Amino acid sequence: MSGATTSWGITHSILDLDENQILYLFSTSAQVLAGVYGLTLTGFVFFRNELSREEFEDETLADAVESLKRRYFTLLLFITALVLVTFALSNLAISSESSGQTYINILLINCGQAAYATSLLTIAYFIFEVISPKRIEVASRALQDRVDPTHGSKTKGNLEEFLRNYNQIESLLVESGQSYGITSYSSPQAKAPRRTSNSRLAEVLARNERISKSLFLRLRELITLRNSIIHGADPVVSREIVTTSQDVLDELKSAIGYEP
């Protein structure tokens, strides 16, 4: 695209810029972009801390929040790379202005301004992604699609049966965790002891070889799915996941030696 516009600009230029205008244009663009990027980065740091606070106050948000953090971090890396490329093109455009190579100069001007506009648009997209009021709901639906990809099929599973199995699994995890003395913990911010998350309890059992790694992974998926349903995912499950929840419940009972 830049090559095509450069070829067109050599013979049919819309704007004719002198050396001073080009120097001012790219120096100003770089300064504006640096300021916008710095403000975006600062705002993201504060917002990430807010996400961590929400996660701490409600352990069922852990999977959705971690998913959002990974997504935002990836977007921020992309924006950072794009901004650095824009700065490099701006410096090259300024440095090559007096070289007399018309085609190279026009190519750098076009590429530099295209990168500048793309950077601003990408930053704007990132900001709207971060402040979206439905970010937790969107993340929860994405997690549900990953854990239970067939939940949208015509043959639905019994949500009540799934939750009943999950509640029994949760009770077994809490009961098993008591033997390790980590069922609850206190924090300076909490007015009362806060129960350890189900994911953490399952991890403790796995690390102490009370359950197998495969069982731990299936427990994590069930925990993720249940939490995603709570926070905005479709309140439906597939027949396969209902069957899986029953199998996991039976295997967990066997692994910890549960006797009714």
Score class of each variant (00 low, 15 high):
61 L>E: 00
255 A>F: 10
76 L>G: 00
54 E>Q: 12
219 L>R: 01
183 T>Y: 07
110 N>G: 09
239 R>K: 10
69 K>H: 04
216 F>V: 08
179 S>N: 09
231 H>T: 11
31 Q>S: 13
254 S>Y: 13
130 V>K: 11
63 D>R: 04
62 A>Y: 04
85 V>H: 09
112 G>R: 00
216 F>W: 10
237 V>L: 03
153 S>M: 14
219 L>C: 03
58 D>E: 10
128 F>G: 01
260 P>W: 01
132 S>Q: 05
188 P>K: 10
93 A>V: 15
81 A>H: 09
87 F>D: 07
164 R>N: 15
152 G>D: 12
71 R>P: 01
248 V>H: 04
91 N>Y: 08
97 E>R: 15
161 E>I: 05
239 R>H: 07
104 I>M: 10
44 F>R: 14
75 L>I: 02
128 F>Y: 06
184 S>Q: 13
259 E>H: 14
98 S>I: 09
46 F>M: 06
82 L>H: 08
161 E>F: 00
232 G>L: 14
166 Y>F: 15
223 I>H: 02
8 W>N: 15
205 L>C: 13
82 L>P: 02
87 F>M: 05
65 V>M: 13
160 E>Y: 09
225 L>S: 08
120 L>P: 10
73 F>A: 12
145 D>F: 01
136 I>T: 15
58 D>F: 05
81 A>P: 04
218 R>I: 15
21 Q>I: 08
89 L>C: 08
70 R>C: 03
179 S>W: 09
217 L>S: 13
192 A>T: 13
21 Q>F: 06
257 G>W: 09
48 R>W: 10
61 L>C: 02
7 S>V: 11
214 S>C: 03
93 A>I: 12
49 N>F: 05
178 Q>M: 12
159 L>W: 02
228 S>F: 11
236 V>Q: 00
95 S>P: 03
250 D>E: 15
33 L>F: 00
79 I>A: 02
52 S>L: 15
60 T>P: 05
238 S>A: 09
109 I>G: 04
124 A>V: 10
92 L>Q: 06
7 S>W: 02
184 S>C: 09
55 E>N: 04
93 A>E: 03
59 E>R: 10
107 L>P: 01
240 E>G: 07
143 L>S: 09
49 N>C: 04
237 V>W: 00
206 A>L: 12
28 T>C: 06
142 A>L: 15
223 I>R: 02
123 I>P: 07
245 S>V: 03
95 S>E: 12
22 I>Q: 07
44 F>H: 15
107 L>S: 06
192 A>E: 12
241 I>V: 12
152 G>Q: 13
250 D>F: 08
83 V>T: 07
193 P>M: 06
187 S>G: 11
189 Q>Y: 07
207 R>N: 14
58 D>P: 03
36 V>K: 14
192 A>F: 12
55 E>G: 00
51 L>N: 09
179 S>K: 15
21 Q>M: 11
139 A>C: 09
